[in-house]
């Protein structure tokens, strides 16, 4: 079970959280002005990287807050968790493969 560092509560077990998929996909300001193809991409197309991935997480059985996390999809290491609205932290892949996540 993953150990996830909620920016508001600290480290908590995975069962308290809900993953909301890829982060940093902004809802268009005025959706009706968006072409069909672009709207389709916004709805359905997601990256599936091997390595660092920015994800949305909800601490549903905790503080109830959504936040973002950088997770290494290979090692499952959480490299960073950060508040909604903050930019994706600048981390290189090497940090992610470090075994230390305790």
């Amino acid at each position: 079970m993953l150990l996830i560092d909620c920016p508001y509560c600290g480290k908590r077990p995975e069962v308290e959280f809900h993953c909301g998929g890829e982060a940093h996909i902004a809802r268009p300001e005025m959706p009706t002005a968006v072409e069909d193809a672009d709207w389709g991409s916004f709805l359905y197309y997601r990256t599936n990287p091997k390595g660092l991935h920015a994800e949305r997480w909800l601490h549903g059985h905790g503080c109830g807050r959504w936040f973002n996390a950088l997770r290494d999809t290979v090692s499952d290491a959480f490299v960073a968790t950060y508040e909604m609205g903050k930019p994706r932290p600048d981390r290189d892949e090497a940090t992610a493969s470090s075994p230390s996540n305790a």
Binding site: P28, M30, T32, D36, W39, L43
Partner: peptide, 11 residues
């Protein structure tokens, strides 16, 4: 002009 799901209704 907008609500959740509106844009998809014209796909």
């Amino acid at each position: 002009t907008d609500f959740v799901g509106k844009r998809s209704l014209t796909r």
